[in-house]
Write a protein that binds this DNA or RNA. Structure first.
Lengths: 236, 236
DNA sequence: AAAACAAATAATGTCGACATTTTTATTTTT
DNA sequence: AAAAATAAAAATGTCGACATTATTTGTTTT
């Protein structure tokens, strides 16, 4: 480190860029920085307490993941959102997730099945006590993601899983935008739970056709809701 | 620019990082920098005639694309190759390409068909005069890629095409490695030509099952060849 | 001579400084 | 007053400098 007063983040061992990358990505995905917003260096420097070099390195990485855009001599900007992109991301994500699942059904072993059931149990427990508390909902989100991750993991392909994660992050940007303006419905959890049970059943029976159809339906329902809400968000 | 003596690359309008990104990526994909090789900053500074800042930004982007790896305080290294990764990349690539094609068959219009036939014609012309000259082979590669690109473009999904490009680049690293140690066979072009003709036939007849099966075979045959050659390359 | 330790050399990661460009504010002109 | 021209301010992109950490070399000890 160039100065003793510099140890801004908790995770030591990584450099500043990788630390700020996580925070910055979170801030973009969560909507702290709005789509299309200009990311001025002075503001970022203050917020993350680092110089321009690590910031530019982190932003360069987000550039590849298409979460920011850059124009020469005009700095970085949060990647704008659009109806077309939203639909394209969700559609592609559905295809990729279906691919992961079909591969997992082919290759998944006992350990895979066990991990799914374990993750499903954790998710159910979290969904039972629907407090609608912000932090409990956050926990449910984490377990929900973990559940679907456990399923996809069975494909046993790092390359494919890498693609999957990238698409999940891009989609979560739209989902968070939607969550900001819509309260969650309690009945949603029950419907979700039912879909999960059906999916697990199809997986264990190695019924690829049914499983991929179910996951497609499961993933695309938020995009249908977004399709109605997005226009108002884009304007105001 | 901080100094009048700095105008290293041809494409003006972009910043140094984006210019060096292209050269650096090319140098890694082509094998100028070997897998696992340490990328010392002094050497890179000399080669590309820029300071560390643009270099680190370019390397940060290659980090996301998994073409380099980084270890804190130990700098950047060319991503190592392995049999497992090679097989995984080619397998995933085959799945993604099949997905592109099935979507293209669903959505492709007249313009799509016309572009395919045009690209096929250019490719055939280039393949007819097999001189085995290095630069002519280079041109054939470009047209071959353009042909398959024209097909995939029909899916009309920027997100999916982005994934496709990323996988193509990762795979080309292995392919170039193989080309370095194996002369191209003249008969290969004929076999290739036949596969292309069949593929076009299936596409125009909108026969998804046959088209995806053909593309899978087409894409995976290099990986089979690599599977035999790689071990000797990995050793020395 | 091999191992353990110490000193030097080299390489990385970060910041501040500065030239260049873009954006905003002000003045001038028709 | 609206438009054009000019001046001022702010922001970007790059490099050199420097502290920190790895690596290599040299020396001492057993």
């Amino acid at each position: 480190m160039a100065d003793s007063a510099q140890q801004p983040a908790t995770e030591s061992g990584d450099n500043f860029a990788s630390q700020v990358l996580g925070s910055l990505k979170q801030d973009i995905l969560s909507g702290y920085f709005s789509p299309g917003e200009k990311l001025r260096m002075n503001r970022l420097k203050e917020r993350y307490q680092v110089g321009v070099s690590p910031l530019r390195e982190a932003l360069s990485q987000l550039l590849v993941e298409q979460l920011v855009i850059v124009e020469n001599q005009r700095g970085f900007t949060v990647h704008p959102i659009s109806m077309e992109e939203m639909l394209d991301i969700y559609e592609t994500r559905a295809h990729i997730e279906a691919l992961c699942i079909s591969q997992a059904i082919e290759k998944g072993d006992d350990e895979w099945e066990a991990n799914i059931l374990a993750a499903a149990h954790r998710l159910k427990k979290s969904g039972d006590l629907i407090d609608k508390q912000a932090d409990e909902l956050q926990e449910w989100e984490v377990r929900h993601q973990a559940f679907h991750s456990a399923i996809a993991q069975g494909c046993n392909s790092p390359t494919l899983l890498h693609v999957r994660r990238s698409l999940y992050e891009k989609a979560s940007r739209y989902r968070n935008l939607w969550l900001k303006h819509n309260m969650v419905d309690g009945t949603m959890f029950d419907a979700n739970q039912k879909e999960h049970d059906e999916l697990i059943d199809a997986l264990l029976k190695r019924d690829t056709a049914r499983a991929t159809a179910l996951i497609r339906q499961h993933l695309l329902s938020p995009s249908k809701a977004l399709k109605e809400t997005l226009p108002s968000l884009l304007e105001g």
